[in-house]
Design a protein around this nucleic acid. Structure first.
Lengths: 339, 339
DNA sequence: ATGAAAGCGCTAACAT
DNA sequence: ATGTTAGCGCTTTCAT
């Protein structure tokens, strides 16, 4: 049996307007009437039709989030933090798995737009700038997460990739390592580029000349960690340490090192951008740059909701970019035994 | 500027009905008209209002999923697989983090209902049976994932917990272990209970008497893995091996063993229900029961969508329970050196 | 304090 | 092949 606001109104002997007022805790309904209506609602197990409400109010109380890859711990934490904040503010969340694929990203942006979400949090692939600009210009609330897009001005919450990478590589240098390889991610992403830049800055500062044979470009996935590590370890004059730009590739790196029968840190030093609870349990716990994943998500969600509510942010309401800091966690994978 | 179907119709010089037909690839629109309308749609960047469409069609093309804990790898994989299947079938997915909390579960069930999702996939806490029954009776499509609920008859996709646990513990026994402890999860959940039962069956079959001091009840979280492992290792006559009922608790177990300066498997054998890519990288890779997480999610999503489409499933359309098998992956954490 | 009625943006039956 | 129109279930003015 279908039960809508009409059913409730009839049964309670009031108009639909009154039921609607009760539903929304609107003041100015006589206590007795309210009680009566609430009783009928309970009796009939009535649940407001959010679709109809959204249509009428032109507000869905829903935010969309498109992440790079739900399978990674990093994005799981972000999803959770966004959800926590959304919930606290009475919003629902639609999670989309962009898969770091510009096509899927575009598709999901359209889906979210079509569903009239009140705002979008996006981990951008870096493409689709035109469509994204168009969304922003037509007043879609949006916050970029973790990465920027060339040619797009938008609120964003980022991690200080360059400084993080710099700290990691400086630590290696301080430990006495000189020949240091890097496995980067996509260089057309601010994350990949920033981490490479930090690496280069640390080397430069220490007077170590740049050596392009030590720079391997991966795709942030385990597979490329495996392959590139193999390449590095098979070089005739093997590097002393590797800086790996994210945890999934680090996993691949460790697998490969094990397979080749080498030891960390005796044969090769390792530092990872991004940490894992498991990384500290290995026979040689991995030194890592820890990212504030939870804060990244919660900060962007809070920012988005402020925008949705029309609250003033910063000066003259221009887009704001917030950059969060990383932390270097020193463990034994960078203990230079030869030094 | 607001652009709706009316705007498009006017600009194209047709009625809204025709635009609607074009939008839905409805046959019987003259090619020339279709072209004209499509051009206007592109020019205006028109995007159909899915909210209005849903209201009218009484169909949202959205499925909701409530998982136990988005942070765990297990549920991440499930979320991804459900999303993959949903996408393939033209559905969106709303992901909710039930947090294994009956209150949140109830809240999200209501939210999803209110949003008129076409179906729900639920990892149930086991509570809220009344409300869930009411949903089912009012024709809400629902599939239970990973766990059942007492007193609820519903489609479900499960893992064979008992057999999995049995295989794990039998393997320990085969390795010569006799004094075997278990760290279980909530016993009011079919997962916790099933795994305990498998443990007991294996012991029983081997003629090893049940010893309740060796049965520790946890809550599936790392913290309880840490605490209960501490209790076990401090027993005056320490067990020779521990069967840990999920991966988060296993993480806690390993942390504790390390902290106490003990060695796996020399001092204590470990087998985990649930695997992790990292578990194989430890100095003593962890023997584990691997769950078909991806299949769990995809199977339940497929089942749900069939139900939504009104397809006949099984005999006389009664609820169906599908149970998937686990796999024992033997590594060195169960190599009994004393045997 | 409450009700009547319009309308949010679409789709679908019916008419032409 | 296309248009007219009612209505999906709500909220919100405007009356009373």
């Amino acid at each position: 049996m279908k039960v809508d606001i009409r059913t409730v109104a009839d049964k309670a002997g009031v108009s639909t307007a009154t039921v609607s007022r009760v539903l929304r805790d609107y003041p100015g309904v006589k206590e007795k009437t309210r009680k009566k209506v609430l009783k009928v609602i309970t009796d009939l197990n009535y649940e407001v039709n959010a679709v109809a409400r959204s249509l009428r109010q032109r507000k869905t109380y829903t935010i969309g989030i498109i992440v790079g890859n739900v399978l990674s711990q990093f994005y799981s934490i972000i999803a959770k933090s966004v959800e926590d904040v959304a919930q606290k503010n009475g919003y629902n969340m639609i999670l989309c798995n962009g898969d770091d694929d510009p096509q899927k990203e575009l598709k999901y942006l359209k889906v979210l737009k079509s569903n009239r979400v009140d705002g979008i949090i996006l981990t951008p692939t870096g493409k689709n700038a035109d469509y994204i600009n168009q969304l922003i210009n037509t007043d879609t609330k949006m916050v970029l997460l973790d990465r920027l897009i060339d040619g797009v001005e938008c609120d964003a919450v980022l991690v200080d990739n360059e400084t993080g990478a710099y700290k990691a590589v400086k630590h290696l240098i301080d430990q006495g390592y000189r020949k240091i390889a890097i496995i980067t991610g996509y260089l057309d992403r601010t994350t990949g580029r920033g981490r490479l830049n930090g690496y280069l800055r640390a080397l430069n500062e220490a007077g170590i000349p740049r050596d392009d044979t030590l720079i391997k470009v991966g795709n942030f996935k385990k597979r490329s960690g495996i392959e590139l590590t193999k390449e590095i370890l098979q070089m005739e004059n093997r590097p002393e340490a590797i800086f790996v730009s994210n945890i999934d590739m680090t996993l691949g790196t460790i697998i490969t090192i094990k397979e080749m029968g080498l030891k960390i840190p005796e044969d090769i030093g390792i530092v990872s951008f991004d940490d894992s609870e498991w990384a500290m349990l290995l026979d040689h716990p991995i030194t890592a740059i820890s990212q504030p994943a939870y804060s990244l998500g919660s900060t962007s969600a809070e920012m988005l909701i402020k925008r949705i509510n029309g609250e003033q942010i910063g000066l003259n309401n221009k887009p704001i970019v917030i950059t969060l800091n990383t932390e270097l966690i020193i463990r034994s994978s960078t203990k230079n035994v030869k030094k």
